[in-house]
Design a protein around this nucleic acid. Structure first.
Lengths: 323, 323
DNA sequence: ATAACGATAATGAAAGCTTATTATTCTGCC
DNA sequence: GGCAGAATAATAAGCTTTCATTATCGTTAT
């Protein structure tokens, strides 16, 4: 059950026809005969299996399917043109000392950076990871050029590049040591300068829930390991959960008692001069695209175009990133 | 100088080759001969004008241009598949009473909703516009199903679908009646329950600037008309400025004195049950896509694929929407 | 040496554009 | 109001180009 691929030439023709409401005019604009346009539209209709235009020999109107296709055709055409521009653009060069917060370091980040490095051999990247505040300090001391970090500490500055919903996490396999039937919530936390800790305590305090700190670790890896072991619950960004931990449904909570809702975190880029430069802009685009692709996981199946599990577009939420 | 369009078939082949590192294996997966794969890659290389793969007869590696193309190819393929799914999906039906805040009602919104209605004839839309707070109240009184409005009044709820930078606005042609040389700032405002008013006064107060309210109007249209007439300055979302008003450069301000920086506003969707439904999800996608396309304005030229003014991808900022 | 891989040449089939023609409908004229 | 003409899209036929296959060659790792 192979899905046919759309032909961008046909989409462009279709978009012009939809705009001009005329096969003949579209043919003139595109340097083709009216007959060619007619055949192209027919081919496109065959490809999608629906009628796209109602032709009353005097006017051309979009069908419902045509309207749906048109909005997507616009996006595909824009993406096509952007791709061609990117490939034609002169190679990016430069030197960048990049700080990346641990929140933004999923296991795949090294691979993404390697891809970026291969795509831009003229760029020399130096990477430092650490806590958000430490990185911003390092940047102010001129040890780093730009920093990708959580935004809450410096809410005014920075350019938001990613937004992630915080969720309550617990072990996938182990039951909680401390039963959570509306009673005391066992927490795994990082030491004080960490904003996750603050979020947890604020939110639980606001909900008048009792809590106890059952474990303190010094890295997000350690935190997730402790959670995976069943010591307690904690919070984390939804996309960066490691195997062994699961997200708790906020409305049901752990074991029946609901936990309070959590805010989302904003990952921002700090240290850009004024406008994004060629280098930082390209890097950010690359990281964001890459992370977004990683969300789709089942790439191998998708590549074949044979459907796979139906994933709806709005699960992706191209704007709010899951919030 | 016509840009060639990419062939999605070739991109898919390229993506499979990049993943398998083998022409032969890719051919097997795609049901083609190895020779066909070889020719397809060659065609793709001709289309983009760059070498994409270094073939050392024993391994296949991506060139820099190949890395760049690959990340874009992923996006194009995903978009292609999403498009096919959308077209194959059963038509959306339902009844929706939609409230849209004035902040989100650019001149083009009626046209966008008309497109949506044509794309989904089984959907009955009722539209109400007004101030954010009034709409949310109407929703709570069960007069509306969902509301698209600014988020600040109810910061916890709602799903953010759009983010827009606030800017200081002034008349494009008329000089300011009241000179703004670091002295009193003449403001055009809406009456109290409006959050723009609050933002202006807060920000000016924080910057220790003196201000005076020189005009009060009851709609955003009236506000922009007053500003366009040169009565004073105000704030507005960058994308929704009308002709006749211009954005003030924050760093320079009006007439030399800098005005304080402004936050961005979050437009959110309120009233969704839990997850987005087929209907609200589709509507939001449609509106967001449409508004994003409108930003590109020079469509007619872009459609032809003949370049036009080079617009870089990061000007679009697919995530943060201009903040 | 041989096996595996990619490039290339030749060939046949299919796609796609053009010209020419037909069918339909709107416009204007009487 | 009816009819000729203009404009538009669909269709047919012919021809060029594109594309995949088979077969073969060159290269490299085992």
């Amino acid at each position: 059950m192979r899905q046919p691929n759309l032909d961008i030439d046909l989409l462009r023709t279709f978009a012009v026809v939809a705009e001009t409401h005329s096969f003949t005019a579209a043919g003139d604009m595109l340097g083709r005969t009216q007959s060619a346009i007619s055949q192209q539209i027919r081919r496109l209709e065959d490809a999608v299996g629906k009628e796209l235009l109602t032709r009353t020999s005097r006017s051309v109107a979009l069908t419902p399917a045509g309207e749906i296709l048109l909005s997507h055709a616009h996006r595909i055409i824009l993406l096509n043109d952007e791709t061609m521009r990117r490939l034609a653009a002169p190679p990016i060069t430069g030197h960048l000392r990049l700080g990346v917060s641990e929140d933004f370091v999923p296991l795949q980040l090294p691979r993404l950076l390697a891809h970026f490095a291969r795509a831009h051999p003229g760029v020399k990247l130096e990477l430092m990871t650490g806590l958000s505040t430490a990185l911003v300090n390092a940047m102010n001391d001129d040890l780093l050029d730009v920093v990708i970090a959580k935004r809450d500490a410096h809410p005014q500055s920075g350019r938001v590049i990613w937004r992630e919903q915080l969720v309550w996490i617990a072990s996938r396999d182990e039951p909680l040591e401390c039963p959570d039937d509306g009673g005391t919530v066992p927490l795994v936390v990082l030491p004080p300068p960490c904003s996750y800790r603050k979020v947890m305590l604020d939110v639980l305090g606001g909900a008048k829930r009792a809590w106890t700190i059952i474990c303190t670790t010094h890295s997000l890896m350690g935190l997730q390991a402790a959670v995976a072991g069943g010591l307690g619950v904690s919070v984390g960004a939804r996309s960066f959960l490691q195997p062994g931990v699961r997200e708790l449904d906020v409305s049901r909570g752990a074991g029946g008692a609901p936990l309070p809702a959590l805010p989302s975190v904003e990952i921002a880029l700090f240290g850009e001069p004024n406008a994004p430069t060629e280098l930082t802009g390209g890097l950010v685009d690359f990281l964001v695209d890459g992370l977004r692709s990683l969300r789709g996981e089942a790439w191998a199946a998708d590549l074949m175009g044979n459907g796979g599990p139906t994933r709806h577009a709005r699960d992706w939420n191209p704007n709010g990133f899951g919030c």
